[in-house]
Design a protein around this nucleic acid. Structure first.
Lengths: 331, 331
DNA sequence: ATCAAAAATGATTGCGCTACCATAAATCGT
DNA sequence: ACGATTTATGGTAGCGCAATCATTTTTGAT
């Protein structure tokens, strides 16, 4: 019995042959350990912190749902705490640590805040950053390939016939912003379209910043026929501005977003966007933390870089440009 | 020990004096039962179904978060299942029951679908309807007072000086729609403003239906100076239409919503709305179900009608009308 | 080949609770 | 007031696992 327990918990002192035999038996008998008994017997109750500031609520909901689900499955406890705008990040992090946690998962934008990460590192709390593009040394990361995703979406737009594709960048402090811009540039380069700096407007991931950025792009002398916003909130804002100017979407202007949060399908037309599987990502984060913690391998945490798949979801906000330069054949 | 166990599980055979003594001791010692041990010892694992179709994603997220939290706390299991658009409701419900559930919680719009409710009733599954205004006989309900909330918000608008307040009704099949309209009418009556049917447009709780309804209201010869939409999605649509027509919100038009979902604060201006505490409501639903089930009192379920508090949250989408008839004093 | 040390395996115990049955106290009928 | 019921309380076992320590097997050095 004890040997089985050891195999399940990946403890060291078991011969490989025995381990294999046990695993074979487990598979054959379809055995699964009883969580209740396990924690009753004093198996350390794993507590995982979830610290967040103010990302989009839709993002957060999905994130929490995913982590709670996995926590339920693997018998861990999630301690959710919000750090208010303008509050001291280091202090909030210390408070969370003082509350007693074995590990922590961090959604953006906190997962790139050095104030938070430094405190965590000093306290040696295993950390998983979810949805960062540039994970800090020493923390695990669950992410999508932002650059490829942006490249795909841009290529899709170019494939539709758009030659002037505007881009609304994300918050400059977040690494995903840089990656998405990079992907956009790569797609242009691949298609042989020169990069035009005036087609790139600065945004900050908020709806309001999207409003301003869209104004800038649409006020250009030669405005873009398509706009790719770095997230859905800014894409929605772009649609609003287009409508305010009497432009039809996608007839007169194609608009695409990124993330596929609820907003993407509430507004009309529904947004063509990149789907980032948020709930799945937070689920993986909890799973990773629990397995590392249970097997006392928290030292290994920093080596984990899990990239999950994204998906281009095409809806009603994109179309070929009204006048297609490519098709203007003579005669 | 056994007596304590009995008191905690509200089993019948305990003298009242003993019960009180035990409860006193529990309070004094700050005792809390160990969930792991409880389920290890064979206490029935409670499984609660959560069946949903396609409400707003924001609503659903909050709903799921609340129920999962409470489920974690009270050691129950939530089985989430979606019924696709156009699928057979009765069949989906039967499938869920076949999966083995002890109770079920139902968000709108399923909580008023007789196809679902009849199957549940026949199988004698304790049911809690969350956020209905007109709970069916035999099911418990957690709700807010939709009518009072709508009355308050309308009164607030009138207090601001609006005399012509437009109203976008919700889906006619849902009881909350009727209650909200009723509240609107009551507030008008209290203020001595005659009810004008042309100021009420039909919506269906979707963004797109809100677009149409807002068009109708703003195309009136004498359009309203304020519009109260029966949910936030339709309010957001109204803001979009106002902008498309070159109207400033709230300068030229006041717009208010209902529910306070994420969308209310993403768009600009942020919506003044009625906050419905969705997560809290689903938490209460699970709590109720678990306590009834554990104490084997599922017979009592239908007697529960829990009304939780709503709140008017004022943000930036409302203001006094530009020309205030009331203040046009002579001289 | 022999023994010491290290590694692997096994036996026992107890985590906190409830099901089940035994006992004690209260209630009732005559 | 007394036994026959009913009702309330207590004792014990065991749920499935891991911590701990005891035992066996393997390994390595001589």
């Amino acid at each position: 019995m004890m040997t089985v327990s050891r195999v399940i918990n990946s403890e060291p002192k078991v011969r490989q042959s025995t381990r294999d035999a046990v695993n074979a038996a487990i598979a054959e008998l379809n055995y699964a350990p009883n969580r209740a008994a396990r924690s009753l017997a004093g198996a350390a109750q794993i507590r995982i912190g979830l610290l967040y500031s103010n990302p989009s609520e839709a993002f957060l909901s999905a994130f929490i749902v995913g982590s709670l689900e996995e926590a339920g499955r693997s018998d861990a406890q999630i301690i959710v705490q919000k750090v208010e705008d303008g509050a001291d990040l280091a202090q909030a992090t210390e408070r969370m640590i003082a509350g007693g946690i074995d590990g922590i998962i961090l959604p953006p934008p906190l997962n790139e805040e050095s104030a938070v990460l430094e405190v965590l590192e000093r306290a040696a709390i295993p950390t998983v950053a979810v949805s960062t593009a540039r994970p800090r040394e020493g923390v695990a990361a669950i992410m999508i390939d932002d650059r490829s995703a942006a490249r795909e979406l841009t290529a899709h737009l170019i494939g539709l016939g758009h030659q002037r594709v505007g881009f609304i960048a994300g918050h400059p402090d977040l690494s995903a912003s840089g990656e998405r811009l990079e992907g956009y540039r790569e797609a242009l380069a691949e298609a042989g379209i020169p990069y035009d700096e005036s087609l790139v407007a600065q945004g900050y991931f908020t709806y309001r910043s999207g409003l301003d950025a869209a104004e800038v792009l649409l006020s250009l002398d030669n405005p873009p026929s398509a706009i790719f916003a770095s997230n859905d909130d800014m894409a929605a804002a772009t649609v609003a501005i287009a409508h305010r100017r009497g432009l039809d979407v996608p007839g007169d202007l194609t608009v695409c977003g990124f993330d596929d949060v609820a907003l993407a399908t509430t507004i009309w037309p529904e947004l063509t966007t990149i789907q980032q599987p948020i709930a799945q990502m937070s689920r993986r984060a909890v799973e990773l933390l629990v397995s590392l913690l249970r097997n006392k391998k928290q030292g290994e945490i920093s080596t984990h870089r899990i990239v999950v798949d994204h998906k281009l979801v095409r809806r009603q906000s994109d179309a070929a440009p009204r006048r297609r330069p490519v098709l203007r054949v003579p005669g």
